[in-house]
Design a binder for these strands. Structure first.
Lengths: 218, 218
DNA sequence: CCTTCTTTCGGACGAACGCTCGAACACCCG
DNA sequence: CGGGTGTTCGAGCGTTCGTCCGAAAGAAGG
């Protein structure tokens, strides 16, 4: 029976959101509890009334943020069966959420490795579920004889989607709706491309491989 | 006149490479100089004979690593004029280098924000140069009337390429040559797709937008 | 053997970190 | 008004961090 504590919830939300902004800017280990204390106006020890360790604070940010992404996605996908439309919904959902919650999503994407133990496992479980939803859609969408590895395709798409915290500025770049169409176009046209039409391109001009792996080895 | 000091260079190289592995695993601020001392066998203060601050060490890793990527790319592109082949060379170069130097490349991609001041600017200058080479290729390749924003396309490609440190395991996944072909296929077929063939897809089924941005706002 | 230059290291400094404790405050129900 | 519960905080604990200093060990040539 979760009690009603609106004041408590509001303050926790302020702390989580402020902490997310600071961690997004400075990185998890460089952002100190004292920074968060200063930014929220809550005393150092007062903060520990709301979380019991810095690790738990990071978990709260990530879990809360990712939970909303997943909930919204599942709600939007409900009743939609066409794989192509399902993929467009996933892309749109991901990018819209990213652009509306850049700080939290940067923490989710960038500080994945800063979580440990139980906390890490809980968030990873959600990520696996998300990746499976995506892989299922791609499996249904995949043209017969496609040369593209499914795992590579899934994570290539995630790369496109998650990298945007490194470059996208909602006010300087094209609006998020246009970005979602661009990414949808790029990925879908690539993933659905006729496999047969490729052969001639790949057999000709093998120049990139001529150098061999020797340059890269030490 | 740079003197010959093979012993010095070899030890510096050992330090840089070992440090890269530790930083890749634990993150820059969590990896301590004492960790690097332990792993290299060089004493704590002895390390400071080879770099003058932890920040400079991070810079050495990133600058040296990215320098090799750029040098190799420019060498491979020499004399090649066909934009499609140039792009395949860039993708192959990037991925091959990534898979052969996973630790250093993870540090380069993931710890970009840990650099400050002069060091940050020096590395960012190289990154801008790299992004411009890529954008130039895409500009030459772009089909007339393409709906895709050039900046979005460039960074979508970088997202595909740089995200791999989050999932790719050279021994468990498909070989890097096959991965390069997959990424090349996905991106090129998507980027070169006939713009006209798309309209019908985009006007139908606007479901993803029905929810509106209100869910995402707070 | 002595000199000079490079390379190495034990030990320590001050600063910043995450976190805790016990006391004090604020509010509500009786 | 009194007492209980939820909330806040100043002060400080123990630890780890990046960095520095002065001395000494090794290599090389005269």
């Amino acid at each position: 029976m979760p009690e009603e504590r609106p004041a408590y919830d509001a303050k926790l939300d302020l702390i989580v959101r402020t902490a997310a902004a600071i961690i997004a800017d400075k990185g998890f280990h460089r952002a100190s509890i004292r920074d968060i204390s200063r930014a929220t106006g809550v005393s150092l020890s007062g903060l520990y009334y709301y979380f019991k360790s810095k690790d738990e604070l990071l978990f709260l940010i990530q879990d809360h943020c990712f939970g909303r992404v997943l909930d919204n996605l599942e709600r939007l996908l409900e009743g939609v069966t066409d794989p192509e439309e399902r993929l467009r919904i996933l892309i749109g959902n991901h990018l819209r959420f990213f652009s509306a919650n850049m700080k939290e999503m940067k923490v989710l994407s960038h500080e994945a490795g800063s979580l440990t133990g139980e906390y890490r496992e809980r968030v990873n479980a959600k990520k696996r579920r998300y990746a499976e939803v995506c892989a299922d859609i791609l499996r249904a969408l995949r043209p017969a004889g496609s040369p593209v590895d499914l795992r590579a395709a899934t994570f290539s798409l995630f790369g496109m989607l998650n990298w945007i915290y490194n470059w996208y500025h909602p006010d300087r770049d094209e609006p998020v709706e246009a970005l979602a169409e661009d990414v949808g176009h790029l990925f879908l046209r690539g993933f659905l491309a006729d496999p047969e039409a490729d052969r001639k391109v790949f057999v000709a001009g093998g120049a990139p491989d001529d150098a061999g792996p020797s340059i890269w080895s030490r």
